[in-house]
Design a protein around this nucleic acid. Structure first.
Lengths: 140, 140
DNA sequence: TTTGTTGCAAAACGTTTGCAGCCTC
DNA sequence: GAGGCTGCAAACGTTTTGCAACAAA
C-alpha cells in the first residue's frame, strides 16, 4: 500500500485528524527517497516548512505506529529511519566496525518470508539485516 | 563463536585492554539471557557491580563494534539490545501498534541467508524482523 | 613505562511536559 | 461545538566532555 493511503487509513481507523503538518512531513519523507534521522527532519525539514519541532517528534511517532516509517538497527549516534514502502524493496548489510550500510536485493529470501502465516498476527512487512565486516575495515 | 571469545579476539586485534569491568559487564549480559536496554544496565547492573555509568556507555559501544551485542529496531522509548549470540537463534515479529515483540524460528530463511556470499564483505550474522499487527490490537 | 581505561563532575544536548489557542470534523 | 493538534517554553534527564588517577601489558 502507498504511504499516503496508509496515513489516511490509519487516521480514519483511529479517529485522528488530517492536518497540513502531517501531510507535508510525509511528503517530505517520500521525496527524500533515502534513509533519514531526527536530525534530518529537524534541520532540513522543520526549518524550511511550517511545522514545529514538537510536531515532528509527535508525527514521527505516529508514522511508526501506522507502519509508514521503520526504524533501522544501524550503529552510530543517530537512529536511522526509512519509509517502510522504500525499505521493503531491499535488505541491508551493515559493517559493525565502521557503521557503513549497503542495500542489496534478495528475492528468494524475501519471497520465503512473505509466505509466512502467523496465528494471531497480521504480517505487513519483513526486513533482513546482515552484519559483518566490510573490506575497508578488514584491510586495516 | 562464543561471546567471551569474540571479546578476547576483538581486544587482541585492536590492541585494547582486558579489564574487570568489560568482563563483568559481558558476563552480566550473558547470564541475563534476555533483551535489555541502557536502563537495565544502569539500574540493575551498574548499581550492583563495581563499574561506573561511563564505563557502561563506553563498553556497550565496544560490544556493538565487536559484534557481541546487537541493537534491535523495536518501537518504544528505549533502545533494545540483545547478545548477538542469543539473537542469532531466533527472529522477531513486532506489532507496530502496541510494540509487542515475539520471538519465532525460521530455519529455512535463516539457512538461505547464511548461504549468501558477498564480494568485499564478511558476513557474521543475519537477522529477520517482521512487522504487523497483533491480534489484541486488531480486535480493538 | 607507556598508553588505554576508568570514574567523576560539570556541561551540553535532545526530548518531554503542560498548557493555551487553533483547527478538523 | 467538541476534541484532537499544534507550538511555545520551561523542565527534565540522559549522554558527552575533559581530566586526573589508575592499571594492563
Amino acid at each position: 500500500m502507498k504511504s499516503i493511503e496508509k496515513l489516511e487509513k490509519y487516521l480514519k481507523e483511529h479517529e485522528l485528524r488530517h492536518t497540513l503538518e502531517r501531510t507535508s512531513m510525509l511528503e517530505y519523507i517520500i521525496q527524500l527517497d533515502n534513509h533519514f534521522s531526527i536530525n534530518t527532519l529537524m534541520n532540513d525539514f522543520a526549518t524550511t516548512h511550517h511545522i514545529s519541532k514538537m510536531s515532528v517528534y509527535r508525527n514521527l511517532e505516529l508514522f511508526l505506529k501506522a507502519g509508514i516509517v521503520v526504524m533501522h538497527p544501524f550503529p552510530g549516534d543517530e537512529i536511522i529511519y526509512e519509509l517502510m514502502e522504500r525499505a521493503e524493496t531491499h535488505s541491508h548489510r551493515i559493517c559493525t566496525l565502521c557503521g557503513a550500510v549497503k542495500e542489496f536485493h534478495d528475492a528468494k529470501a524475501t519471497k520465503l518470508l512473505r509466505s509466512h502465516r502467523f496465528k494471531g498476527f497480521t504480517m505487513k512487512s519483513n526486513h533482513i539485516y546482515i552484519y559483518g565486516i566490510c573490506s575497508k575495515c578488514r584491510d586495516k
